[in-house]
Design a protein around this nucleic acid. Structure first.
Lengths: 193, 193
DNA sequence: ATTATCTATAGATCTATAGATAATGC
DNA sequence: ATTATCTATAGATCTATAGATAATGC
């Protein structure tokens, strides 16, 4: 994204909007061009092919996830330092989770559900790693690693849980009346330690 | 599946083979017909449309998952009754997991990785519930429910963990050298109680 | 008679390239 | 001069329908 021209950036933002509106399959060069008020062939002067545009949308999604998790970490650090007795269950206010892991889980879910189609695009296919900014993937993984004290197996388990919850929720796999907040709590509580 | 004609069954099996070979997107009416040695329009005498064929493949996948989990339950029950001191960590032989939940997790992973593309087809889109045999979805969910003593929130958390692990693994999202068996153990161990 | 198949075809899309034209920046 | 756009078009697909033909089962 940062290495793009201004016009390239506009195109990627339109592509993201298109994906978010109508799903990953709706991202076609023609639909994208329509969205921008130009003709499809013009896009090829800015990107070599469709995959390149897609990769930029994925990079954007990954970056947003990283930023959302980092912001949650910071908020948690601030609230923890102002709570002298740590973060027992009692210390959790209405909008303040009890533990760092719970805070990250909430942020992960909120971010994914804020743009579910982009989340799926970034998640339900192999990552185009060669086309992503150096270090972005690792950056997105770091908050969870820190919260798990660099126990990589536990971090992966937590990530899988969070991804699974979001994926199943987005695809409508849970019953309509399922109490998903309770399922998240059940998972986070046990994975906590 | 059970309500299909013999020829319908053959078509669905070919469709499943096609999906498994080349992914959900490779399931086109033409490719399917080629696989069967007939022309695409002939398929419409057996199924009203492509979605109907897809739904049968999904039903097949769901049924296999249910059977795999039920088989794991039975194997566990048999091995537990022959182990007088229960299923402590010591009681776990090379191919025998320590707990029912671990056994189910292993079966879930093995089943999914035995036909990853069918797993994705059955999992990464809204279920065509109207086209599935009555009760199949619930049947596939039961083993996990039983293992969780009907604590539905915990069962959902475990399911999300297992689905997330499989999904991320299939899509190549973990590093190549990741010790996924360890991540599964970490997840199952903590979700155990 | 019914069933399975075929050919022919309509009607939509998609990605991507080639080459022309207009607009912008020296 | 360079850049962004356009038109025209090649070349692939896809799903699905209509109507003809061959084979099977009474």
């Amino acid at each position: 994204m940062s290495r793009l021209t201004p016009r390239g950036r506009e195109i990627v933002l339109a592509a993201r909007a298109l994906v978010e509106e109508s799903g990953p399959a709706a991202l076609t060069m023609r639909a994208l061009a329509d969205h921008l008020g130009i003709k499809a062939p013009s896009l090829y002067k800015h990107f070599p092919d469709k995959a390149a545009v897609e990769a930029e949308v994925i990079a954007l999604g990954l970056l947003e996830t990283a930023e959302a998790l980092e912001a949650a970490e910071e908020r948690f650090a601030r609230s923890a330092s102002s709570a002298p007795f740590g973060s027992g269950p009692t210390g959790a206010a209405a909008d303040e989770p009890g533990t760092l892991l719970a805070a990250l889980a909430r942020a992960y879910r909120a971010d994914a559900l804020a743009h579910p189609h982009v989340y799926l695009l970034a998640t339900e296919r192999p990552l185009p790693r060669h086309a992503l900014p150096e270090g972005l993937e690792a950056r997105a993984a770091m908050p969870l690693m820190r919260a798990c004290d660099f126990d990589v197996d536990r971090a992966r388990a937590v990530w899988a849980f969070a991804h699974g919850m979001v994926s199943l929720e987005i695809h409508g796999r849970f019953p309509d009346d399922a109490d998903l907040a309770a399922a998240w709590r059940a998972g986070v509580r046990t994975l906590e330690r």
